[in-house]
Computed example of a mutant assay.
Amino acid sequence: MNIYYAFIKSIETGSFTKAAKELGYSQSAISQMVNSLEKELSTTLILRSRKGIRLTPDGEDFLPYIKNICNSHRELIQKLKEMEGLQSGLIRIGTFSSVTCHWLPGLIKDFKKYYPTVRFELHQGNYTNISNWIKEGSVDFGFINSTIVSDLAITPLQKDQMLATIPKNHPLAASSKMSLKDLTTEPFILLDEGVINESLSIFKQNNLELNIQYEVQDPYAIMSMIDLELGISILPKLLLNRCPYNVETKPIEPSINRTISLAYKDKKVLPIASRNFIDFIIERLTK
């Protein structure tokens, strides 16, 4: 490839000497490379004179093709670098329990079928933690509730219904639905979602106040507490799909939903492995 770059740079600079300086060769080396190209093409491409160099008619005809070769080679090298990054890349993700348990294992398993050497680093927290980690660069991207986070690029994935979660033998266990007012009469176990809690916001909008007795970060701990009849809670349906505890779930009237989204600062500057995994997630979860 050096002979093609030597030829293009000589034409761009108008001098073998200047081309040699920019490419890190001697002037004689550049001249020899251009001579080699001329022998390969069986023609004269450049006319040399005391005033400098200029293209011959054949040189004019071959120039666009040689430029295409150089451009294609650059693209090939760039793609090689990207693939090397994809093969050895580290993907850092901000996530929360329901996504960590019910989405990511399958997504990671399928992604690693294509890129088995990619490594993953999962940082688990609430929505506020995750958005801060993205902004400060501690993670490449994260899963968040799109109604709560701002100042980031957001790609909605799926809506997730929030359900009232109560002990199996609770007096309202036979009801088909629970009202917001029903949920205010019992000791409430609040899931810590960060600075802004969407469930709390719904109650405030309806001038209702929960009887919060516990505030817990781990939703599985909340399920265990409900199982032992310490209180009731509101938990996401995604998390409750494979609940290991003896609890009852009920739709809430009016319904409460969250939109699980991907968030990142600037996708274009993320590592190639993270960009590809983002695209992989979107393709799988937005069908």
Rank of each mutant, 00 (worst) to 15 (best):
S201H: 12
W133N: 07
T165R: 00
A174D: 09
E215W: 05
K177W: 13
Q124H: 13
D192T: 09
E215G: 04
V118C: 13
E215N: 14
L190Y: 02
F120S: 07
L208V: 02
S233C: 04
N197E: 02
I148T: 15
S233R: 07
G137T: 08
Q217Y: 05
L210F: 00
M162Q: 15
E229S: 00
K168Y: 14
Y220S: 04
I148A: 05
Y127N: 13
T165E: 00
N145R: 07
A153C: 10
P116V: 01
P236A: 03
G231P: 00
G231T: 01
L210C: 02
A164N: 02
K168P: 02
Q158Y: 12
G137K: 12
K113P: 05
A153R: 12
M223P: 08
N145E: 12
L190N: 03
V216Y: 00
E121A: 13
Q161S: 14
T147V: 11
Y114L: 10
K135Y: 03
I148K: 05
T184D: 08
D192Q: 15
P236W: 05
I202Y: 12
S224C: 13
G231L: 00
S201C: 07
V216R: 00
N211M: 03
L230E: 02
I144L: 04
E215Y: 03
T147H: 13
T117N: 15
S233F: 01
N132R: 14
W133M: 14
L235V: 06
L152F: 08
V216M: 06
L183C: 09
S150T: 14
K112P: 09
I212M: 01
N126S: 02
G125C: 06
S176H: 11
D218Y: 08
F143C: 09
K135E: 10
M223S: 10
E186N: 11
S175H: 04
N207P: 08
Q205P: 07
T155Y: 12
I144T: 14
L190H: 02
P156Y: 13
D192P: 08
P219C: 04
Y114R: 12
I222P: 02
I154E: 15
M178H: 06
V118Y: 04
S179D: 02
V195N: 13
M178V: 15
G137P: 14
I130F: 04
L230N: 06
E186R: 01
Q205C: 10
Y214M: 06
K135T: 07
S199L: 06
Q161Y: 11
T117L: 12
I202N: 06
G231M: 00
L228C: 14
L210G: 01
L210M: 03
E198R: 11
P187K: 03
G125R: 04
P187C: 03
A173G: 10
V216F: 03
K113V: 14
R119T: 09
G142H: 11
H123T: 10
L152V: 06
L210Y: 01
V149C: 15
L190A: 11
S138P: 05
H170F: 07
P236N: 06
P219W: 03
M162L: 13
